[in-house]
Structure formats: C-alpha cells, structure tokens
Design a protein around this nucleic acid. Structure first.
Lengths: 152, 152
DNA sequence: TATTGTTATACTCTATAACTATA
DNA sequence: TATAGTTATAGAGTATAACAATA
C-alpha cells in the first residue's frame, strides 16, 4: 500500500514541556511494556518485584510508599506475585508481612532487570553521554520538586 | 502530628532513565490534572480541545492521529465536548465531520491554555533557561525516535 | 489513635473487535 | 478496499471510602 504522508497539523502543545514529557514517557513505557510481555508482568508489577528484591523483609505498604503506589492498589499486585510464586510473605507483626522473593522470584527479578537495561539502551541510545547524564539529573530534580502532587 | 521520617529504601530503579521519566511525567500530570479540575476537563480532553482550536475543520480521526489517540477512544471525548457546547460538528463529506470550536469553546480553550502555561511555570520554574531549552530538545528527540512503539 | 491489609467502587486512559456508512 | 464514526468490551493504573485486625 502506498503510504500517504499527511500534512502536519498546527501543534499548539509543542512548546509545553509537560506535554513533551508526557509523550516521551508514553512512548518509552509502550516500548518497555512490550519488552516485558515475555515475562508476563506489567511495568508497575515489575518495579514492585525489583523493589522487594532490593529491600527484602519490608511490608507492602512500605514498598508502595517508595513507589507512590497506594496501599489499596498494591494489595492485588502482591497477591498476583505471590500466586505466581515470585514473592513469599513472612510473618512480621500480626497486622503486616515481610515480603521476600522466592528463588524463582530472584531469577525473574534478575531477568527483568536485564530486560529493562536492554530497553534503556534502545530507547536512549541516541543520547550522548553528557546529554544522558544531564537528563537524568533534571528528571530527578523535577520528580523531587513535584512529587508532592502525587501525595494526599 | 509528628512526621516520622522513614529510612530510605534501596532504589534499584534509580539509574533507569525510563523510570525517572515516568515518575517526572506522573508528577507533572497529577499537578496538571489538579490545575484543570476547575474547567472540568481531563488533560487528554483539554489537549483535544486545544488541537481543534488550532486546526479548525479537521476530522476527529485526524485530530486523534496527531495526538496518538485511537478513533475508538476519541469518539466519546468529542461527544462530551459537543454536549458541553465547546465543539460543533460541521458537515464534511458524509462519513466525517469538520470540527470547530463554538464561541464558548474558544473562550474555554484560551483559559485552558493559560492554565497550562501557569502550570508549566510552577512545575518547571526550578530550571534555568538553558536547561529548559535542552530538556525540550531532548524530549522531542526521544518522542520522535520512540513514537513507533505507540503505533500499531 | 494510627497503621496494615483488604475489598468495593469509580474514573481515566488505552486496546481490540465488530458494525454501519461512505469514499 | 480503505476510511470515518460508533459501540462494546477489557485491561491497566489510580483515586477514595470503608472495614477488621493489630499496634
């Protein structure tokens, strides 16, 4: 089929950095979701698993706060990770559990981390080292300064 | 109440630029959604309205393609904009309509654009002019290079 | 009183499939 | 055949409210 190039529309959002940030993030997330589909986890659940792996013994509420995921929303994620045999709940204090990865969860977390690293290489390969470092710095600063909007 | 500072967890995602991008975007979006709540439009519907304002007479499919919103998803947005008296459909070619803003839609679009500009000022005020310009450039590049992940 | 985990519920955004009408 | 609009439906992700059990 012949691809007809459409005339560009006027883009009134072009100069809004927030819109560019949203589009760049959406494109990167779509790429990552695709890369993770072989592990049958969503990007969010993947980050939860990596967080548990790096911080064994923490409660799901604590993990959720570190990722800005509310208690009510992280509950079904943990349940899924447990059902899939990736995470185990250890008794903690009667109202909460300490979360740890199972042997299978450890392997999966390692593969996921590698998948994410490969994904990063592809998505950001067009940036030179200096630009990459500066982008990392700016994004962390923006996140820190505006994270309050994500909290109650 | 005394605020207890929690010990920081190990963050295995810290060096993933894609994660930082997602967090920075989420924080900015939450801030924008809050700023737009007085206009009773979501960020997505707001961008659709601004796009129609800047490109009168285009079809909703055309507007949707420019914003990476699928036909099936933009249909109810346009219906809402029409019900709220912000957008009018003009006969085009029998299977499609040319979309234009009503007088009320034009005023609303103007207010929304101002709200977005104010929002940007707050969210990005910590960046100096040079950093701001470089971030804009990098985000556009990333969007362009990775947009294919958003298309079928 | 505050915190943890849980369920119910709703809203936004996105995705596919299927249908009608028109080009 | 391809495109436009629509509807139905499903899945993430996120939000609040409420509840029981525990600290």
């Amino acid at each position: 089929m012949e691809t007809t190039i459409e005339a560009e529309l006027v883009d009134p959002l072009e100069d809004f950095l927030g819109y560019q940030l949203r589009c760049a993030s959406a494109a990167a997330m779509a790429h990552l979701a695709n890369a993770l589909s072989s592990e049958d986890v969503s990007p969010s659940v993947a980050t939860v698993l990596l967080m548990i792996r790096a911080n064994p013994g923490r409660t799901q509420a604590r993990i959720g706060r570190a990722l800005s995921i509310k208690r009510a929303n992280i509950a079904p994620m943990i349940a899924t990770l447990e059902e899939n045999g990736l995470v185990r709940r250890e008794n903690n204090d009667g109202r909460s559990f300490g979360l740890v990865c199972t042997a299978s969860g450890i392997k999966t977390a390692r593969r996921i981390k590698q998948t994410m690293a490969d994904h990063e290489d592809k998505v950001f390969q067009s940036l030179d080292a200096k630009t990459y470092a500066q982008l990392a710095k700016v994004l962390k600063k923006l996140r820190r300064r505006n994270q309050s909007a994500l909290e109650a």
